[in-house]
Amino acid sequence: MQTVRHSEQTLRTALISKNPALVSQYEKLESGERRLMSEAFQPASDLFRPITLHSPSDWITSHPEPPQDFEEFFNDPYRKTPSPEKCCIYIQCIGSLGNTKMISEEYVKWLKGYCEAFFYGLTVKLLEPVPVSATRCSFRVNENTRNLQIHAGHILKFLKKKKPEDAFCVVGITMIDLYPRDSWNFVFGQASLTDGVGIFSFARYGSDFYSSRYEGKVKTLQQKSSSDYSVFDNYYIPEVTSVLLLRSCKALVRWIDGESAGTPGVTPKHSREDNVNLPKPVEAFKEWKEWIIKCLVVVQN
């Protein structure tokens, strides 16, 4: 196990910008907001902790990237920013996200609310959900895990055609596993920065995906033709737990922007489709809630 920890001087050099426009914005911050930002530079800060790498397969270890300070990020010519004409984030559901229509609708509402809070100031809109057949994408059964997969690249083309004029981006979400090309085993998501579209799957965030008891395995794919999508009519959807919701929220905003602890919640079983306001499974968000409370204490003192 390895811990990534940087000195106060290293953090200040990387995070403090000398750009006049940003300096001007910083000077307009209230004293409490400045105190909160300064906490990031304190080695013993309880708010901004060092990153713990649990194994060599962790992303930071297995995918080394060149460092980027804030100045480089701000001046990146390819960095896209919203404008009055492009100010909406659209979420497009592909297939069901829950075991019933009611659960699926509540789940995407929770994701929408999280996205609105994270990207404060932007409007988040929901496009009408579509079945897999509407995308006309290719699909297959993964030869290793035996679960259904849909072609990510084909979904991107579908989203590009549906992109509204005022869209900053369109994010497709699905509970079906993805693959980008025949030679790949799977991919969590794929996006086109040029076109402002992305498709991301939460299938592998389910608690049982990698277990021998996974119920989404398909023995044989009986496809009558390339346009036969009937196999998706009753495909397996994992239970929406607090951990699944947390991971989905984190993944959604991370993919728009450029595993967690907790006890899985229980999705209640309902017999009526018109029963709304399901209790949100938020047990896994406890650590984040405590962090926000600490931040508020710093700002308000």
Rank of each mutant, 00 (worst) to 15 (best):
S211C: 03
S212Y: 01
S212K: 08
Y214R: 03
Y214Q: 01
E215G: 14
E215Q: 14
E215R: 14
E215N: 04
G216T: 03
V218Y: 05
K219H: 05
T220Q: 12
T220L: 07
L221E: 04
L221P: 01
Q222G: 02
Q222C: 01
Q222P: 00
Q223L: 03
K224M: 02
K224R: 14
K224L: 09
S226Q: 10
S226H: 08
S227W: 06
S227F: 08
S227R: 06
S227Q: 14
D228S: 10
S230P: 02
V231T: 11
V231S: 00
V231K: 00
F232H: 08
F232A: 06
F232W: 04
F232R: 12
N234S: 11
Y235M: 10
Y235Q: 07
Y236C: 06
I237V: 14
I237L: 12
I237K: 13
P238V: 01
E239N: 07
E239D: 10
V240I: 15
T241Y: 11
T241G: 10
T241V: 07
S242D: 03
V243Q: 08
L244W: 02
L245H: 05
L245N: 04
L246I: 00
R247K: 15
S248F: 03
S248R: 01
S248A: 15
S248G: 10
C249D: 01
C249E: 09
C249R: 08
K250C: 06
K250S: 07
K250P: 00
K250T: 11
A251T: 06
A251Q: 11
V253F: 12
V253Y: 12
V253N: 03
V253Q: 03
R254Q: 10
I256L: 15
D257L: 01
D257P: 00
D257S: 09
G258A: 03
G258T: 09
S260T: 00
S260Y: 00
S260H: 04
A261K: 04
A261G: 03
A261D: 04
A261V: 07
G262E: 02
G262L: 02
G262C: 05
G262N: 02
T263Q: 15
P264R: 10
P264G: 07
P264C: 02
G265R: 10
G265S: 04
V266P: 01
V266G: 02
V266S: 13
V266D: 10
T267W: 00
P268F: 04
P268T: 09
P268N: 07
K269H: 12
H270K: 13
H270F: 11
S271V: 13
R272W: 06
R272F: 12
E273F: 06
E273T: 10
E273N: 14
N275S: 14
N275I: 11
N275M: 13
V276A: 14
V276Q: 15
N277P: 01
L278P: 02
P279D: 11
P279F: 11
P279H: 09
P279C: 11
K280S: 08
V282W: 03
E283S: 14
E283K: 14
A284N: 09
A284W: 05
F285K: 07
F285Q: 10
